[in-house]
């Protein structure tokens, strides 16, 4: 049976891996170049039997000016997960579309497009509304979006609402010592 380490080794030999992190014996994250992502994904799907795409998500590295995109795959034969990460630029945020590999990819890419403003040229219906209907301004999941201020400006705050800092509140009321 193919093990996850074998699969990672194959990827390293064929495509090259920038970084590797063994999180658990059955969960490994590899970082590859942006250009290599589609090849790595198809290799994993067709040859290494990572047939199930669990999710696609993005992480905003505001300080470094980068987005990280994570594709998480699952192998039903040996029950292991493999995360494929890549970095893309934050200013010109676009990524190659992988909608031909799995049917659900198009939906994930629509979500990323709406929440992070990452463009996936050629992905079906990527410019349509997903969950936020008619959103204007910077996408809400980017870290430079101030969600509290937006909420205060847009939605009415009812008077009388009090907010406590949990740490201080707990110290004062529960753990007095």
């Amino acid at each position: 049976m193919k093990t996850i380490l074998n699969s990672v080794k194959n990827i390293e030999q064929i495509f090259g891996v920038l970084a590797k992190k063994i999180q658990r014996p059955d969960l490994i994250f590899i970082t590859v170049e942006k250009k290599q992502v589609l090849s790595v994904l198809s290799h994993l799907r067709d040859i290494e039997e990572y047939t199930h795409l669990v999710m696609i998500t993005a992480i905003d590295y505001l300080e470094q000016g980068k987005f990280q995109i994570l594709y998480l795959l699952h192998n039903y034969k040996n029950n292991t997960d493999l995360g494929v990460k890549t970095f893309i630029s934050r200013e010109d945020a676009h990524m190659y579309s992988a909608h031909h590999l799995w049917g659900q990819v198009a939906t994930y890419q629509r979500e990323l497009h709406e929440m992070f403003g990452i463009d996936f040229p050629g992905s079906p219906r990527v410019n349509e509304n997903f969950a936020l209907e008619g959103w204007e301004g910077i996408p809400p999941m980017r870290r430079d979006f101030d969600t509290l201020r937006y909420s205060q400006e847009t939605y009415n705050f009812r008077k009388g609402r009090a907010t406590n800092d949990p740490k201080k509140y707990m110290k004062k009321n529960l753990h007095k010592e």
């Binding site: 969950a131 509290l148 909420s151 939605y155 705050f157 009812r158």
Partner: peptide, 19 residues
């Protein structure tokens, strides 16, 4: 729905339904 509850600072949750 009264004052936003734990989602008071969310970007897509309204804070006061009676508006």
């Amino acid at each position: 729905s009264i004052n936003g509850g734990m989602y008071f600072d969310s970007y897509n949750t309204i804070n006061q339904i009676d508006k």
